[in-house]
């Protein structure tokens, strides 16, 4: 991370807790850069996280107010803090298991309410900290500590889930595309309603090791190669897009184009 951004890191820390090859360090950089480029007042920044590797991205690393909460509950804590002090810029950074499995109910209800929260979900497709168990985003067939014969179930499509629940802005980018990722985080923070950024972030220690992707380079190549832009994906069949990471940005109007849904905040006609 360049010197100009070190002012956002908490002094006295000796490195991060992330494993070698983990994508979360890149995401930490993207978050800090987004905050820097937006010129936000650090005193009014609040980072909220849950439990898991990704919950450590803001806490303790970022020098701002941080609230490291219970497993799954980050969005509910963030809701209370934002309502009690609307001047705060509240950014939730946590993992896929935390936000979408144990915290799934809080996530969809926060999206429905449309409060001005930004949720950044680091998706590594597995429970990292607890030892590599399957999560709600683990691909069908993937090996994990709890699916030794391959995951029999399919993953959530987080973009569709959160957009369907009422989010005003949703984006998905992998850590292999740091510039578009940073721009998406900036747009999410600027969005004055509920916004959500899913970040594909590889986990060599748990997902890679269990799925014959021990080589960190190969793991990053996989994420890069699976990624396909919205425009490229348009018109392709479901079979063609299976397991692909469709990247880009979405707004509620996309639901209307798809033939369903009501734009949150718009009067029903």
């Amino acid at each position: 991370m360049p010197r100009s951004l070190e002012q956002y890191l908490r002094p006295g820390l000796k490195g991060t807790t992330f494993c070698p090859g983990c994508g979360h360090g890149i995401l930490l950089h993207a978050v800090v850069r987004a905050v820097h480029e937006l010129g936000l007042d650090r005193r009014e920044l609040l980072f909220v996280s849950g439990i898991g590797c990704a919950a450590w991205i803001p806490s303790p690393h970022i020098l701002a107010d941080t609230l490291h909460t219970l497993h799954g509950r980050a969005v509910a804590y963030a809701t209370g803090a934002k309502l009690a002090n609307p001047k705060l810029t509240v950014i939730v950074v946590s993992g896929d298991g935390d936000l979408v499995s144990i915290g799934g109910n809080h996530l969809i209800h926060a999206a429905r309410r449309g409060l001005d929260l930004t949720v950044i979900c680091a998706n590594n497709e597995i429970y990292g900290m607890t030892g590599g168990q399957a999560g709600p985003t683990t691909p069908r067939g993937a090996a994990s500590a709890t699916t030794p014969g391959g995951n029999p179930y399919g993953p959530f499509d987080l973009v569709r889930l959160v957009l369907g629940a009422g989010a005003a802005y949703v984006a998905r980018f992998p850590v292999t595309q740091p510039r578009p990722l940073t721009d998406a985080i900036k747009r999410a923070i600027r969005t004055p309603f509920f916004s959500f950024v899913e970040v594909a972030s590889p986990c060599p220690t748990q997902f890679g090791r269990r799925n014959r992707l021990e080589d960190v380079g190969a793991l990053y190549d996989r994420i890069r190669d699976l990624s396909i832009s919205r425009d490229e994906a348009f018109g392709r069949s479901a079979a063609e897009l299976r397991d692909r990471i469709v990247v880009g940005e979405w707004t509620p109007e996309d639901l209307l184009l798809a033939g369903g849904g009501r734009v949150p905040g718009a009067p029903a006609c």
Binding site: L70, A76, Y77, G80, A81, K82, A84, L88, N105
Partner: peptide, 22 residues
């Protein structure tokens, strides 16, 4: 500020977040 949350887990969570916000 008043809010009806999605369950009691969320309710106590929001209370704690609000308390830290002052």
């Amino acid at each position: 500020a008043f809010i009806q949350m999605e369950d009691e887990i969320a309710s106590i969570s929001a209370v704690i977040g609000a308390s830290w916000a002052g």
